[in-house]
């Protein structure tokens, strides 16, 4: 009995240690990326190319998901608010949920599985086929030439994608409530306008998606760069990118929300 408990406890301890170690490794890697970011800003076309790949690839799925999430929010919100006789406030509900939470979080989750996994697979394959070694031998640091541009491409594209997600979500909510359920259009917009605060809602949402962007891009590049140079190694790394970024996004969201509610404003 005691042995089983001891073993269980040890497993929990081991796992915790591994996770903490892994987080530490990602943070160190992030430091290395930052140190090697000079090239990315001197030759910004390298980053633009990655914004194109990471951002444009995820665009369709982000737009479609935003629209659907907004429509569902509109339906659910309408139904609940109607029983309090305040169905015009549905615009506020849709806008605030999207700006504060769903926009940053859902688009980050989608981005991690679409663009994050692609970044990991690409870097991992370049490593497995010795392209990174070849680059080192050509006196070009792969951290500066391959990793940092992909990192910055991710960091820059995610907040933009989250903004689009939110915009499409509001459109979705508008479609369902105003066009289909005949909520008054003027009330929908004016209440939203009155309730949304730039700093408290929009800026905080932007900060969230910026932080998520850093986390996803750091994890994705880290997993690719550290992947064992084999087919299984790369596929395992791709899966780990999706799982760990998703967990990181949710954990960071909790942390950031708590901070933002207590208020640095």
């Amino acid at each position: 009995m005691r042995g089983a408990w001891g073993q269980g406890l040890r497993n929990v301890g081991d796992t915790t240690l591994r996770i903490v170690e892994r987080i530490g490794a990602v943070v160190l890697f992030l430091g290395q990326i930052l140190r090697h970011s000079g090239t990315s800003f001197r030759r910004f076309s390298l980053v633009i190319r990655e914004i194109y790949f990471a951002g444009v690839q995820s665009l369709i799925i982000i737009l479609v998901s935003g629209l659907f999430v907004g429509m569902v929010l509109g339906l659910q919100g309408f139904e609940t608010l109607q029983s309090y006789g305040s169905s015009e406030s549905v615009g506020v509900l849709v806008a605030l949920s999207l700006m504060r939470e769903l926009g940053p979080v859902v688009s980050a989750l989608l981005f991690a599985s679409r663009a994050g996994s692609a970044i990991t697979a690409e870097i991992g394959l370049m490593k497995a086929t010795e392209q990174l070694s070849a680059m080192e031998m050509m006196a070009v640091n792969p951290l500066a030439r391959v990793v940092a541009p992909r990192f910055w491409g991710g960091v820059i594209s995610l907040p933009l994608l989250a903004a689009l997600f939110t915009a499409l979500g509001i459109m979705g909510g508008f479609l369902v409530t105003v066009i289909m359920l005949k909520v008054d259009s003027g009330a929908f917009w004016s209440q939203m306008q009155a309730a949304v605060d730039f700093r408290h809602d929009i800026l905080n949402g932007m900060i969230k998606s910026l932080v998520f962007g850093v986390a996803v891009a750091a994890i994705a590049t880290f997993e690719g760069y550290e992947a064992p140079p084999t087919a299984e190694g790369v596929s395992g790394a791709t899966t780990r990118t999706v799982v760990s970024s998703s967990l990181a996004i949710l954990a960071l969201d909790l942390l950031l929300t708590a901070f933002m509610m207590k208020g640095w404003n």
Binding site: T129, M137, A139
Partner: peptide, 16 residues
């Protein structure tokens, strides 16, 4: 030092 060195990799390692 590597700027002075060229290396042909066994499997080519071209940038795909």
């Amino acid at each position: 030092m590597r700027r002075q060195v060229g290396m042909l990799f066994q499997f080519g390692a071209l940038f795909t």
